[in-house]
């Protein structure tokens, strides 16, 4: 009896001991990871600071100078603001159109790609890895790469940006669509097949109705991202409001009121579409 108690307390001691050792080791690892992370952040910041034209410490108190200039100039010329807003409205429409068209086209391609790369639904099951890799590549290529190359080949304007964003969207949405489609019920598809429906028909009538709400919700989320992308691509030469912003910035002081109008339009648009889309997405996912 006493012997058993003895070994018992011994083993608890052992368990306690090894538990504490584990905790200690875990703490050391955690601390080490944290230290490496902090080291990376600090040294990374110092390198970035070093390679930047203006330093962080000399620049951070100037951060507000530019917005202040823009605001004061816009305030001085506030009478002209509506005119500026009206002047840049068409290019805003162009930016929005780029986003809508590229989301639409990208979503259509993404839909086809996703169905072709989903197990159980694919038209050619052996080609699934092929379509998956294709989507990976489409997603990996930054839009700016495609846009710049297409601007060289096709000339400036909205089309290069539209194609660039559409390609990326096809890859990104294709992956998300495929994840949704994987969970869809196959019974309707089997039913349709038994009636002799073609692949396209069974997808249209058997799968799409099941996954449509989720697909739409993802497409809307992508649309929010694409509005930003289309504005930013404009800045590097693809037309729309981004191009106008880059032009207004190149003018420098004296035309900051126009820059303010563009900021206002862009900000308003992004917030507006974010709100509309998130409200609609909530409705879609709730049922």
């Amino acid at each position: 009896m006493s012997d058993a108690t003895h070994t018992g307390s011994n083993s608890t001691e052992f368990i306690q001991h090894s538990y504490l050792a584990l905790v200690r080791r875990r703490r050391t690892y955690g601390g080490l990871t944290l230290a490496i992370f902090v080291l990376l952040m600090v040294s990374g910041f110092m390198i970035a600071d070093d390679r930047n034209a203006g330093g962080f410490w000399s620049g951070w108190h100037q951060v507000l100078d530019f917005p202040k200039d823009v605001f004061s100039e816009a305030w001085e010329k506030r009478a002209e603001l509506p005119a500026s807003l009206a002047k840049y409205f068409p290019s805003l429409i162009e930016t929005i159109n780029i986003a809508v068209a590229s989301t639409l086209i990208g979503a259509l391609f993404g839909l086809v790609l996703s169905l072709l790369s989903t197990r159980g639904l694919a038209r050619w099951p052996r080609a699934i890895p092929l379509f998956r890799r294709l989507m990976d590549i489409l997603r990996a290529i930054p839009e700016i790469v495609v846009a710049l190359v297409l601007i060289f080949v096709l000339g400036g304007g909205p089309i290069p940006a539209m194609i660039a964003i559409a390609l990326h969207t096809a890859g990104a949405l294709g992956k998300m669509f495929s994840e949704v489609a994987e969970n869809s019920d196959l019974k309707p598809v089997d039913g349709l097949r038994s009636t002799g429906a073609t692949w396209a028909q069974s997808m249209m009538l058997g799968v799409l109705p099941q996954v449509a709400p989720n697909f739409l919700s993802y497409a809307l989320l992508r649309f929010e991202i694409n509005i930003r992308a289309s504005a930013i691509l404009g800045f590097v030469g693809a037309g729309g409001i981004g191009a106008e912003l880059s032009r207004a910035m190149a003018w420098g002081p004296g035309r900051f009121d126009e820059a303010a109008a563009i900021f206002l339009l862009l900000f308003g648009t992004i917030v507006f579409f974010d709100q509309v889309s998130s409200r609609y997405r909530n409705k879609l996912t709730e049922g």
Binding site: A48, R51, N52, A53, G54, F56, G59, Q62, D65
Partner: peptide, 9 residues
């Protein structure tokens, strides 16, 4: 405008 061109910006 505040930090100039570079990776930090």
């Amino acid at each position: 405008r505040a930090f100039g061109p570079g990776p930090l910006t």
